[in-house]
Computed example of a mutant assay.
Amino acid sequence: MRDKVVQRRWFLAGLGAAGAAAAAGPALLSSRATPPAQAASTAPHAPHAAAHPAMLMALIGSYTSSTPAGRGLDVAHRADSGALEPGGTVDGVPDASWLAWSPDHQYLYVTNETTQGTVTAVDLTSHTPKVINSQSSRGAGPTHVAVHPEGDFLFTANYTDGSVAVHRRNPDGGIGESTDLVKHAGAQPHAHQIVIDPSKRWVVAVDLGADSVYVHGFDHSTGKLTQNQQLVLPAGTGPRHLVFHPSAKHAYLLSELNSTITVLGFDVESGKFTPGQVLSSRKPGAGGENFPSEIAISRDTGFVYAANRGDNNIATFSVEEKGAKLSFAATAPTGGDWPRHFALDPEQTSVYVANQRSGTITRLARDPGTGLLTPAPEVLEVPSVAVITFHG
């Protein structure tokens, strides 16, 4: 099963080479994503994205080199009904597979998942997205980027060659010089995620190919990483993403190759994980192929959500014992095919799902009391969609 997933990712990275040259394109918002009736009335230098300043803005990434081709980085606005309305496309952001905000939510950083990977910085201080610059990710197929909570560095996980790059962040929000590059050990390392723990002391890298979670110390004066722990999981686990409990005492690790969630204990002082409970990401009795993709915890810390590609649902888990245990609650169909990513809106009353293969973003209404999700009718078409985030 691992070979199938690895080959799929390598094929995607190869396709992405065609989009690399677009990274130097103009940093203007076009009207390609706007319906024809709206595009006709939209002035070239007055983007549709500025037409709804009071509405919540969503940024949406998609694969420009896939079939059908995505548009890269789209803008949408949320209506009162919960529906997302298209607002334009930011030119020059190919194969946008992950989106991460600066601490002040004024700048967005986008992985360009191409053979010669790059990361693009986007300025949203005026609420009209403008590309600042792009820098090499120093690896192939970058799938994840994170900005340090102090705002001075960003970290990129390169999937294809299993490496983590560190870059300084410039005062204007742009991406500066690279200060470090760490290559994971093993025959087929594939770094899939990079995240900073809630204490801001440790940088955590999740490597699907190495079946490992790495914890690094970070020196702000030099911009260098120092490995502190390699937590090795059983062969074939395929860890993809983790999310910390805000207490920093626990984290929840979602594994792509065996459809599990592992509850990890975390000691902030030593910077080390200890594996605990392991449970399925799927509802009891589920069969067939399945590749989980994304995991998140609600702001009230009462619920954890996991996306299942194959089952095409979002599973809800109750958080118990102060974060040390999860219990399966329910699943809700996403209404689309291959949910690669999802995001809770700022009010935590809806979950928006990026269904890659069906090219749709669907909405699930969320009950804040029970944590349960219910399919809603709103759908936005975004070919080869990969990721969604809110500028809230």
Rank of each mutant, 00 (worst) to 15 (best):
P171A: 09
R366M: 08
I295D: 03
Y214C: 07
S136R: 01
G209C: 07
I132R: 00
P368K: 12
P275E: 06
P94K: 00
R32H: 12
S318I: 01
P275S: 07
S97W: 01
I295C: 08
D367A: 11
L124E: 03
R8L: 14
T374V: 10
Y252M: 06
Q277R: 09
Q229C: 05
S318R: 15
V382H: 10
H148N: 00
W10L: 14
N355F: 03
G392A: 10
S102T: 12
V213P: 01
W202G: 03
A286T: 02
Q38F: 12
L124P: 04
A210C: 12
L373F: 02
R78L: 14
H341K: 12
A83I: 05
S30L: 06
Y109I: 03
V195L: 14
L73P: 00
I175Q: 01
T222H: 01
T316G: 08
P53F: 10
R240E: 04
E294V: 07
F266V: 11
F303N: 08
K322E: 15
W101D: 09
H245V: 05
V382Q: 08
V93A: 10
E381M: 10
S327C: 11
P142S: 09
D311N: 15
R366N: 10
H77C: 09
Y159N: 08
V145I: 06
S212V: 09
L257F: 08
L326I: 04
G151S: 00
G335M: 07
A17W: 13
V110G: 02
G117N: 01
A40Q: 14
G70A: 12
H127W: 11
A386E: 15
Y214N: 09
V319S: 07
Q116V: 13
I297H: 05
G271D: 09
S178F: 00
A329N: 13
A185C: 06
H216Q: 10
V131N: 06
D152Y: 01
T362C: 05
S163Q: 05
